[in-house]
Amino acid sequence: MGGPTDQDLARQAALGDRVAFAEIFERHAAAMFRYAVHMLDGDTHHAEDAVQEALTQAWVHLPQYRGDSGLQTWLFRITANCVLSARRRRRPIAMEDWILTVPAGPDTDPVIHAQHGELWVELDVALGELPWRQRAAWLLCELEGLPYEEIAAILDTTPTVVRGQLYRARRTLAARMAKWR
């Protein structure tokens, strides 16, 4: 028999049990942070703020959580809203064009990147170019392993739409990563 279920922990945390909330945190907060970082283009400071806000809201509103959806889905829904707010708050920073120009050279060679264990950098860049909802659906499915129904509940859409977004996201990423084969 395993430990207490998410629902057991949510009930205890709703009644003020901080140890139970710490266990919920242990189970789910790292995934919430991963989602926030990748949805905010690798900006860990804004991601930390968004996850902080999401977890604070979770702690405050747990007494109102009735278990209609899974706890993980509920937490991700709060995180998705906080991330969206953080994205709206971010202001574009003016910069010179030359800063955005990637210099050609040995550093752009996939072999060099692979040797330095930086395969994830390429994927991170490719993810950043995906449309917002495609990126969210891909992260929740591929990075967190959530089923279509839960992703749809988090993103406030339908499983059919999620399936379509995932198809397009996978196709784009596969094409982008093809040069690494």
Binding site: H38, L119, W120, L123, D124, L143, L173, M177, R181
Partner: peptide
Amino acid sequence: MLKEATQSLRD
């Protein structure tokens, strides 16, 4: 390759 990259991204 995409699977490896996904794992690296997570770590």
